[in-house]
Design a protein around this nucleic acid. Sequence first.
DNA 1: AAAGACACCTGTCCGC
DNA 2: TGCGGACAGGTGTCTT
Length: 269
Amino acid sequence: MPELPEVETTLRGLEPHLLGRRISQIQIRQPRLRWPVPTEILSLQGSTIQSLQRRAKYLLMYTDQGNMIWHLGMSGSMRILPSTEPSTRHEHIKITLDNGASLRYIDPRRFGALLFSDDDPLQHKLIHSLGPEPLSDDFNSDYLIESCKQRSSAIKNAIMDGHTVVGIGNIYACESLFLSAINPKTKACRISARRLQALVQAIKTILQQAIQQGGTTLQDFAQTDGRPGYFSQSLNVYGNKADCPVCARPVTRITQGQRSTFYCKNCQK
DNA sequence: AAAGACACCTGTCCGC
DNA sequence: TGCGGACAGGTGTCTT
């Protein structure tokens, strides 16, 4: 999916089009997403969108009649289009606004979700027990050192676990470990405090840069205006497309937790 | 509590 | 060209 920078990019693209707008119609073209789209969503027709928020990789939409919790899964994206624009093959949800614009949810693999929340979406069972936001002050070296102390798993798996820190998926895990020169296979509990501090900094730097570039597009992701995410050009190891930019040796691909890991054996010890 | 495997689904790419 | 298999941004759930 869409990792944190792609969800943040989506939120920023949507905000100016949605805030204060009244929802005139909600069409569920394909209810079979990761979970069936609840029919309560339709009760938001006629409501006014008051605010948007991102928590982890969830996009929260608050209206005066209830809230929506969105997740983009592996291949989801959102676009703003004129309501007259025809729907395409994998467009599963269409929300028509009172000004002739519309929000479209597109997701070829259908691993994404749209859920309804009567009360505080931050207290939803999928969300309430998640770890800190990586760009917040709560995610700092003291915190990461403490949470790695007892962990026997590889550091890459540890930072992709949403109970440690949210928002980091396969791409940004690989890129952060490259930037901090840490071998992804190293057990979390065996990494020095100094190096974990460097990792915290690397994560914050990479995510901020990716947000500035509008995220990373591999196949499906697009910004809300249809442009791709330009951080793809800044990837150092993910995708194995080129040699290591530091030492020029080939990038290595291994499998960890059924996901591909890309790293430089020479630079990441 | 923690770690690992599996499932969900569609599309693309590569080798034969 | 066609077909089979591997692989793809995530994460809840089940099993050890």
